[in-house]
Amino acid sequence: MSYVLFTATGCTRCKIVKSFMKENGISFEEKDMKAEGKEDFKKFYLANRCFITRGQDGIEFPVLTDGEEIRQGIGASIAYLSAGKKLDGFFCVGTLHKEWVDGIHPCSGNLDNAEEFLKVLRYLKGNSMKLQVETSGRNSYILKKILEEGLADKVIMNVVGPATIYSQILGKAVDVEDIQKSMALVAQFPSYQYQTTVTPVIRQGGEAPVISYLTTAEIAETAQFIEEGTGSKKNPYLIRLFKPAESKNELLKSIEPLVSLFPYRTAARAYQVFTDLERT
């Protein structure tokens, strides 16, 4: 298999991926998009722009390809080099810079591949990277291993809603006990935060589905769910605004945005006194 690694001059993450490939005897061709590889990357990007994420700060490097698959960012690249597609779901393109790596999701991958996933985290930590892990609570077993090995510097838990409709919001069956185990684990990390996006919920399907935002009462139930899972009312808890235009669900793109989150904060503070609102 022939790999091409698009890098950027001075990119520490690129250097770490290159070191991993050399240590494991993986041959590759490097193309520096700020030097001799500029035109090659421009052509590659134009042909594959739908597979490459461009954020507010531009494109996250490195970008790895074997001619069939494309992986972007340090985590996803090393994961693919380590285990092929088996670790898809565990990593996505992050937004943090310098020594921080995010886009790490232990809840979204296949539990059968937990050890391969942990190996990637160990490699990243071994190269002096700080890791921010994000979870919705599934796969608490993996989160426990991350805690025991000190493989995360910060954990964010997306508590998507109250226990009664958790599966409905995620669109997949969940074990509420598994979610609660994750809640308890999250509070043991060096830095952590719980957060909930006030998202629209499809209450009833059919040709004309009934869709409405989480109510203030449901956010209060969510905050109470966190209290029950952690045994504390004093957790950092953030209420986030849903942005319809950014939704991947076409049914939710046309819903009217909420005007204010203040009533949600008031409702949540009965159970999480440090509730705050996302700055927009």
Rank of each mutant, 00 (worst) to 15 (best):
T7H: 00
A8P: 08
A8N: 11
G10H: 01
C11H: 07
C11K: 01
T12A: 13
T12P: 14
C14V: 08
K15R: 09
K15V: 11
K15C: 10
K15E: 15
K15S: 14
I16Q: 00
I16G: 00
V17A: 02
K18Q: 11
K18H: 05
S19N: 07
F20R: 05
F20K: 06
K22T: 12
K22E: 12
G25R: 09
G25T: 04
G25C: 07
I26N: 01
F28C: 12
F28Y: 13
F28T: 04
E29H: 12
E30A: 02
E30M: 00
D32S: 01
M33L: 14
M33I: 15
K34V: 15
K34R: 15
K34E: 15
A35Q: 15
E36G: 04
G37A: 05
E39V: 11
E39Q: 14
K42N: 07
K43Q: 13
K43I: 11
F44A: 07
Y45S: 08
Y45D: 09
L46H: 09
L46G: 12
N48D: 01
N48H: 08
N48M: 04
N48W: 02
R49M: 09
R49C: 09
C50V: 10
C50R: 10
F51M: 12
I52A: 03
I52C: 04
I52R: 00
T53G: 08
R54A: 10
R54Q: 11
G55Q: 05
Q56N: 13
Q56W: 14
D57F: 13
D57N: 12
D57G: 13
G58P: 07
